[in-house]
Design a binder for these strands. Sequence first.
DNA 1: CTTGACTTTCCAACGATGGGAAGGTTCAGC
DNA 2: GCTGAACCTTCCCATCGTTGGAAAGTCAAG
Lengths: 155, 155
Amino acid sequence: MNIGQAAQASGVSAKMIRHYEAMGLIPQAARAYSGYRHFLERDIHNLRFIRRARAAGFSTAQIKKLLSLWQDRQRPAREVKQLATEHLTDLKARISELELIAQALSQLVEQCHGDERQDCPILDTLAGQDDRAKKFLELHGTSHPRIRSKLPMKK
Amino acid sequence: MNIGQAAQASGVSAKMIRHYEAMGLIPQAARAYSGYRHFLERDIHNLRFIRRARAAGFSTAQIKKLLSLWQDRQRPAREVKQLATEHLTDLKARISELELIAQALSQLVEQCHGDERQDCPILDTLAGQDDRAKKFLELHGTSHPRIRSKLPMKK
DNA sequence: CTTGACTTTCCAACGATGGGAAGGTTCAGC
DNA sequence: GCTGAACCTTCCCATCGTTGGAAAGTCAAG
């Protein structure tokens, strides 16, 4: 199997297969005489595993651990559960932060009449000139309201 | 005001102030004879505006528009509201995706006994060998389950 | 005049992914 | 055997927002 077929079969793009190889997430693929990589069923399974783990939002660092745990038949389920739990905690924290933002923004959008007039509570709030959204500013204005994201981008 | 004081006063790091200037989000700062930038109250207001907008998860492209709307006293609130609404829609979509993932992962974590035994539904699911989490795979395994994130990273 | 705290610019990295160039390989059709 | 299409290779660059650092210049206090 060449890399294109492996990509097709696994759902991981050829680009990313090379990338995963380069970063050591998967072992160096065997090469044909020509230099072409070739892949076996076993590699496809690995790639599918990675695709699912990425879909679940695990970082490549976490996936590396998951893969080695997967390959180690002696591993205790405890370790896997711990890793997944940590990720889940991250996910929930991120959801909470996003929800806080969405809630505040939602409120502002509701309060904005949105017609041809010039006054707009959204801008006023961003400018710090509006007390109506004081909560929003307190929550997200002064501290570090950035949102951690381990999850990949969608186009 | 030098850049350090502007950073202090606005809550935007000096690094980012330079970056925002370089990318055209804020106008080129006035320079002292020495080459040092100096900032006025007006600039600080701009920077605070940007900080709050970033906190609300707006992209720099969106903030650029918001800033120009803010400066334009003739702008209709309609435009601001539309921009905010689009962002809110994005936020909600992202939250939904994260919640789907969290839900599925949560279920798997619950099903994993997490002791010294070797069998683990989490790994089995990632490996595609477990039907218990069929839903999860259907939702996130075959399509493009990546999560768009316009929001900045937290360290 | 020295020292330390500032500032400047430039270059690089993160993480996951995609785009594309320049060149080599394989295979089918003629 | 030759040609062209469709593959493959490596390498560089871009995204997005942010941070880090290096090398050099500036300022103010001692």
